[in-house]
Amino acid sequence: MQKESLKSKKGILLVNLGSPKSTSVPDVKEYLDEFLMDERVIDYRWIFRALLVRGIILRTRPPKSAEAYKTVWTDEGSPLIAITEKIQKKLQKLVDVPVEIGMRYAEPSIETGIRKLVEQGISEIVLFPLYPQYAMSTTETVIEKAEEVRKAKFPNIKINYVQPFYNRDIYINCLAESIKEKLPENFDALQFSYHGVPERHIYKTDPSNTCKIDDSNCINSQVESHNARCYRHQCFKTSEAVIEKLGIPKEKAIVSFQSRLGKDKWIEPYTDETLETIPSKGVKNLAIVCPAFVSDCLETLEEISVEGKEEFLHAGGENFHYIPCLNDEDRWIDVVKILCEERLNDFYLV
């Protein structure tokens, strides 16, 4: 009875990136303003960030982004939010605690998600940032925002955070099985395209202050304290583990990074440049997957499966096969359940 009483106070909040309310230019502009003005996305001092975002980017980019969103928008609205809602509904059937969703940007916000749980009598929340790898602009900003909201609005609740799971066997097995089912019979290479980040983000999140991005030892390092916040390391390790699980020769695997913004140096190699060069190296039949995302969104459905395909075919490629994200696959929901329950159980240990 006591355990059931404790359990009734617990809940789960799934947090994803977010999306504009609609494909209208004003809604897209509002979303981009909140997203790009986040100091963990564009990490300049506020005045310089404002000059860049509000003085330059938001004057030209919203109409272009709105047109891009129109190409992926569904009858249910934003694909990312619709998929996250499906994950929530499926997970709710598997657990006996309330499950809500929140978005780091726009609505439903993290504050909205926490409030919905609190209104149900929840005082202990497992918050799951839906990002396999740790990055300043993903996991870190979600945690910082949640803590800001908690301290300001809900000081009496406790939050346990699901940690990055880029190398967890249950996740690697899930991802590998999903990819295997969708791989074309004949392919020359499997490309892993991760969302890029500026190189300086890697240095800023390195607790050892010893990171050297051009050093291959970074990727192979076994020092966990160095790797816990190294996005680049974690991306390569995810790819390496999946390749091994699939039994694909290493020479048929490619790792690259997409979605760079501005003129700063971002981690390499770049996805667009890779797509434009590999056909001349004999890669005519390409399969590509985006493991930095668990839900399909603008960056996968438009940037990769449309723009990326055009770049590859224009450069001489013949067959381009985009492999969807895990989305609401049942095997992925099982992984989400396990990862959340681990943190739910941690409340009993406090």
Rank of each mutant, 00 (worst) to 15 (best):
F320R: 01
Q92N: 04
L246R: 09
V53K: 00
N186E: 15
Y31A: 01
I12W: 02
F312P: 11
S256D: 03
S137F: 01
A50H: 10
K153E: 11
L32S: 10
P132D: 02
Y231A: 00
M37F: 13
S208Y: 12
V142E: 00
L91G: 03
S65N: 08
M37Y: 13
V99G: 02
G282D: 10
F347W: 06
K204P: 07
C218W: 08
V126P: 07
I159S: 06
K10L: 02
G247N: 11
G196Y: 07
L301N: 03
T210A: 12
I323N: 00
K284P: 09
K281Y: 12
S193G: 11
G102M: 02
D33W: 12
A315H: 09
A189H: 12
V223S: 10
C211T: 15
N227S: 14
Y171P: 13
E140Q: 11
C211K: 12
P198R: 02
D296H: 05
G11W: 00
E311Y: 13
E244W: 10
S216A: 14
K284I: 10
G113L: 02
C230T: 07
G317E: 01
Y203C: 05
R260W: 13
I170D: 05
C325I: 01
Y270H: 12
K204E: 07
E148K: 10
V25Y: 05
T271F: 06
K158D: 04
R54F: 09
D334A: 06
D330E: 03
K7E: 12
A241V: 07
Q2W: 13
V223P: 11
D346P: 11
F320L: 03
I288P: 08
F320I: 04
K29D: 10
V126M: 02
W73T: 06
E224C: 06
E307P: 09
T238G: 04
V197F: 10
I47R: 09
E268T: 15
I110S: 05
E148L: 04
E318P: 08
V15E: 00
P198K: 03
P79T: 13
E140P: 04
E311T: 15
K204L: 08
D27C: 11
I125S: 00
H321S: 12
E100A: 02
E341C: 07
V72R: 00
V223R: 14
D272M: 02
L80V: 10
Q120N: 14
L183P: 14
G55C: 03
C297I: 12
L58D: 09
V306D: 07
G11V: 01
N227W: 04
L51N: 13
E85M: 07
E185M: 12
N167Q: 11
F293D: 00
I323T: 01
Q133A: 06
I125W: 02
K284G: 09
P20I: 02
T141D: 00
D296G: 06
R229N: 07
S239Q: 06
K309R: 15
E34I: 10
H321F: 14
I179C: 05
R45S: 13
Y348D: 10
L286W: 10
V255L: 03
K158P: 12
P132Q: 02
C218F: 09
V97G: 01
P198L: 03
C174K: 00
E302Y: 14
P164L: 04
P20R: 00
E30R: 15
P108C: 11
C340D: 03
N227F: 06
N16S: 15
I114V: 14
F154I: 06
K309E: 03
F347I: 04
S123Y: 05
E39R: 14
Y44A: 09
R229M: 07
E199L: 09
Q258L: 01
